[in-house]
Design a protein around this nucleic acid. Sequence first.
DNA 1: CTGCGAACTTAGAACACCAGCT
DNA 2: AGCTGGTGTTCTAAGTTCGCAG
Length: 586
Amino acid sequence: MKELVTGEMRVKTPKTEALESASRWEEEKYEDGVKWKFLEHNGPCFPAEYQPLPSNVHFLYDGKKVKLSLEAEEVAFFFAQMLDHEYTTKKVFRENYFKDWRKEMTNEERSLIKDLDKCDFGEIHAMHKAKVEARKNMTKEEKLVVKEANQKVVEEYGYCLLDHHKERIGNFKIEPPGLFRGRGEHPKQGMLKKRIQPEDVIINCSKEARVPKPPAGHRWKEVRRDNSVTWLASWTENIQGSIKYIMLNANSKLKGEKDWEKYEIARKLKLCVDDIRNQYGQDLKSKQMVTRQRAVALYFIDKLALRAGNEKEEGETADTVGCCSLRVEHITLHEKLEGNECVVEFDFLGKDSIRYYNKVPVITKVFKNLKLFLENKQPGDDLFDRLNTGMLNKHLGSLMAGLSAKVFRTYNASITLQQQLKELTNKSDNEPEKLLSYNRANRAVAILCNHQRAPPKTFDQSMANLQAKIDARKETLALEKTELKQAKKEAKTRNSSDPKLQNLVERKKAAVKRCEEQLLKLELQATDREENKQISLGTSKLNYLDPRISVAWCKNTEVPIEKIYNKSLRDKFAWAIDMTEEDFEF
DNA sequence: CTGCGAACTTAGAACACCAGCT
DNA sequence: AGCTGGTGTTCTAAGTTCGCAG
């Protein structure tokens, strides 16, 4: 797989070879599995120690002041900090919290503090809020001092040397302790996320490199020399027992090449997607139940851009599903619905407990299979009881090198963007109109991939404000128009060759035009914002849309790339900006 | 196969910051 | 100068994939 992709990736050469940034994408690849030859860094940055409460701030239990041990106090502080958050009102959160908090208490504390409802974190909460407020109200000079200090930290910990290049590290800070904030109905929400010590951390760097110094009085858990992986440091977190990594920034060579490769695989799928669709179309009639289930799952993944859907351990995480883990209760079949036949109604929680709700007309063969899969099953049973992601991906891998379920999301997202841009963009449009078209194309993808966001709390207000602006502009425009008419009339009835009057007419004309443009711009903005209320465009832009489509579109429409990519996006997609010509086709 | 863990990508929320307004 | 809304950045949770051991 690696070979196939790498070969194709070399076809197009960046045109600005002289530039270091461009030629970087052309360096020799290492043998399979080797990610680097030299890696040196300063290790991760640890969060500050807990600062004990000042003597005038108290924790109260059952109305009485209680001086807590340092350990118990720190954990009390975590809860106090979150008091404004909905989390602290949730039963599971509170129970998990209290259980873990009590583990940090001394015997004495534990025998006293037996009921979270009797705990009063008010003073601690107030102190925390005051601190946040004070930080906000710092003078310019004070803020500058903080900024410079942060800058120092970035300089020290934010970069590494990987082969010949100084690279930015993505997350060089160890995650601070706190209360676990799982998404949705997470059974572990509120548990104590423990402070990570250097003794928990594995460092990865090359043999020749200077080993980072652990904080004074501490040692690393291990120093590893593994160049088959890209991480610089890792530790195991205590909530799920999973490993956390310190890795490079998205603008690094290593991440950039991987991203490029991802889009090349998706383009390869474009070449064989018709065959694959024919194949699973045939498989819908297979005698083998597994094959039929696989075919229907693939149909969903392809048509609806569903995620693969691995099984999850019950009780460890929120109850969410993807394609292969769909249960009977997540779909409803309608022979007829709203004028369509064979409609599948989906309603389930996907990644991050985001709801997926969709009514989709499907082909008869799929519909019939679904009916079959539902026979004699309970709501809680698996829809695809003979299938899992491993089997599905194994099959996909045999159809095309490098193919897995998620490639369909990348492919369908990118191809949709390209099609939509072609359909929506008019050469003759002005820039704001072109940008609206781009956003609409982007939005079509976000809807396909179900990238949602909570509507901004201030949404209705800010929409009303914008509308008020539009109304005001309309009034001004009407006024300007009347004035223009007046000026024209005067110029006609009086001496029409009076240059002063002619000049006035011209000026009024210009004013009207300017006003109209501003109005249009505002109206486009309003449309864009309204359509975007619950949709997040960023995720697809960052993860699913081949940047070369966007770069080529910018070149074709003469829209500056800055209008659609901010600085970090331009850095991340530097490879695409460097190499893409206006005739690029995904 | 199947189960498991490691490594890496993808995701929305929270937070920080800054431009444009009053 | 202070406010505010919107954008960009940071954070870290939650997915996918793959390879390995049994």
